[in-house]
Simulated scan of single mutants.
Amino acid sequence: MAGITSADVARESGVSRTTVSYVLTGRDGVNISEETRRRVRETAVRLGYAPSAAARALRTGRSDLVLCILPDWPVGPVIETLLDELADELSGRGLSVLVHHGRGARSLTDLWRTVTPRAVIGFAPFADHDLLAMRQAGIQVLGTLGEDDQPDPALPSESQLRIGGLQAGHLGRRRGRIGYAWPTDSRLEVFARDRLLGVRRACTELGLPEPVVRPVGLDVDAAAVAVRAWRGQEVTGVAAYNDDVALAVLAGLRAEGLSCPEGCAVIGVDDVPAARLAAPALTTVSQSIEVQARYLAALVLADLDGAEDKPVHPGHGLHVVERDSA
Rank of each mutant, 00 (worst) to 15 (best):
C203M: 03
V199C: 12
G217C: 11
V225C: 03
A240E: 00
T236C: 02
F191W: 09
G176S: 11
R173I: 04
A224C: 08
R193H: 12
S186R: 15
P151I: 01
Y241G: 01
L171G: 06
N242Y: 00
R187I: 03
A192K: 04
N242H: 04
S186F: 08
R173E: 14
L218Y: 05
P183R: 08
Q233G: 00
G176A: 11
D219E: 14
V190Q: 11
D219K: 08
P211Q: 12
L188P: 05
R175G: 04
P183T: 03
D221G: 06
A223V: 07
T236L: 03
D152E: 10
W182E: 14
V235R: 02
L188N: 13
H170L: 11
P209C: 13
L166H: 11
G237W: 02
P211D: 08
Y241M: 07
V220G: 00
Q160W: 01
D152F: 01
Q160K: 09
A240V: 00
W230S: 06
S157W: 00
R201G: 01
G172I: 11
G179M: 13
P215M: 13
A223Q: 04
Q160Y: 01
G232M: 07
A223N: 01
P215E: 13
R193K: 13
R177S: 03
L208S: 09
Y241Q: 03
L247Y: 05
V225I: 09
T236Q: 06
V212W: 03
L155N: 10
A202D: 02
V227T: 09
D221S: 14
G232D: 15
V216S: 10
V220Q: 14
L188V: 05
R193E: 07
L247P: 04
L218E: 07
L196T: 00
A224P: 04
L188K: 13
W230Q: 06
T204R: 15
P209N: 13
V216F: 07
V190C: 07
E189D: 15
C203L: 07
D219M: 07
P209M: 12
P153V: 10
A229W: 01
R187L: 03
V245I: 15
A154S: 15
G164D: 05
R201E: 14
R174L: 15
V216H: 08
A168W: 02
R200Y: 00
V245P: 07
D152Y: 02
R175E: 14
Y180R: 02
A154R: 15
D152T: 06
D194T: 09
V190K: 06
C203H: 09
L196W: 01
V212Q: 08
Y180M: 04
L161A: 01
Q167H: 06
D221I: 08
V190T: 10
R187C: 02
T204D: 15
V225Q: 13
R231E: 15
E189L: 13
C203A: 09
L208C: 09
A168C: 09
A226C: 05
P153K: 11
S157H: 07
T184Q: 12
A168I: 05
E158R: 10
S186M: 06
S157M: 03
Y241W: 10
L218W: 01
D243T: 04
V199Y: 08
D219S: 13
Q160G: 00
T204N: 09
A222Q: 14
F191V: 10
A229D: 15
I178Q: 01
A223S: 09
G164A: 08
A239H: 04
P209A: 12
W230N: 07
A239Y: 07
